[in-house]
Design a protein around this nucleic acid. Sequence first.
DNA 1: CCTATTCGGAAATGGTCGTTCCCAAATAGG
DNA 2: CCTATTTGGGAACGACCATTTCCGAATAGG
Lengths: 204, 204
Amino acid sequence: MSTASATAAPRAGRPREFNLDAALDRAIVLFSERGYHAASISDLTEAMGVAAGSLYKAFKDKKAIFLASFDRYKQVRMELLEAEIAQGRTGRDKLHRTVAFYAQAAQGEMGRRGCLVIGTASELAINDPDAAERVCRSHARSEARLVELLREGQADGSIRTHIEPLVTAKTLLCLMHGMRVMGKTGLDPGQADKMVGAAMKLLD
Amino acid sequence: MSTASATAAPRAGRPREFNLDAALDRAIVLFSERGYHAASISDLTEAMGVAAGSLYKAFKDKKAIFLASFDRYKQVRMELLEAEIAQGRTGRDKLHRTVAFYAQAAQGEMGRRGCLVIGTASELAINDPDAAERVCRSHARSEARLVELLREGQADGSIRTHIEPLVTAKTLLCLMHGMRVMGKTGLDPGQADKMVGAAMKLLD
DNA sequence: CCTATTCGGAAATGGTCGTTCCCAAATAGG
DNA sequence: CCTATTTGGGAACGACCATTTCCGAATAGG
């Protein structure tokens, strides 16, 4: 139903020979590593394994490819995070897993590749309303989830009630985004794990 | 002595009619708002008030303009931050001022403009060694300053001795960079100030 | 004052960009 | 089986990019 889910059967015509989501996954890597402007259509056709003509039949223009990549990136990462959160017992545990999830992503190859949300915020937010809106919605959802987990922790007794969920959620979100920024130039895995522990002080 | 300090008197020839630092200040705004690739030479000549030919007499190429802008940005911001830190009494106070300095920068017009270091990390770090090195050095210096202030606080009794300066410094730096990321899409001033308070929990 | 040197600025250049066009190939419906 | 429709893919397109060139103007040294 969304941009890249189960392909609604076409009424007629030659069927598409490439998988849209698989192609977008490769576009995500390219856009994450180089940013929007430095990733040319040539680069995209090569990385996605799709000729320019075919690309423009699947997407209106380059920006549409980017926005579809962004949406898929968000969807995939969100599902992974929620699977991780689901394994947590208490609100505090779930928050710990959330921070650790970002710390993990900030390391190694994925860390150097960078977060597409942050890249979009940096490169496009100020000039492109469509990109800005998606970044805002991403931030809002992340913040809302953190607030929810904080309240859950306060309800189950794993987090004291005197902390302010909204401010703490915003602070945690900043910390997690900052880890992704640092990951672009390499983050020491050992230190990253310790930072997760330090971050949990915000819940005291 | 550096890229854009006191202009060493030229031996002969027509003197430069524009001020290098003032022109770089305008380039900084452009690069911060649009990023490296989206800021064209046309944009730069217009913003800097210098024709293309003259620009290429002052700088080897576009990347040199960018790196000079980056260096000046770092210098200016660093001086402002150190002036702010100098007003602090204790180590804890100085750290509070440091976090507040970033929180302030993340708000309003400057927040939407973004941090050139973070923009460079996002857009160029993975593909351009020169840019990556500067980002790394910037992070290292920021971290070193935080470690220094933490140790100062531990020495003057404003910060307890059981915290680990290195991990705490890294965590604070992530938090401050995260605030700048959030500032690209707008950060509520009231909440930003509260986040500074929340961040200080990392020192307990 | 004359010459070497540098700057200012507009025009020119080659390359690459995003996008479109075109035609052969592949499907669905009648 | 024929037609309408869609895709694949390469060639073609105009626009804009970073950079260079060129020439008049402005300075310093001799």
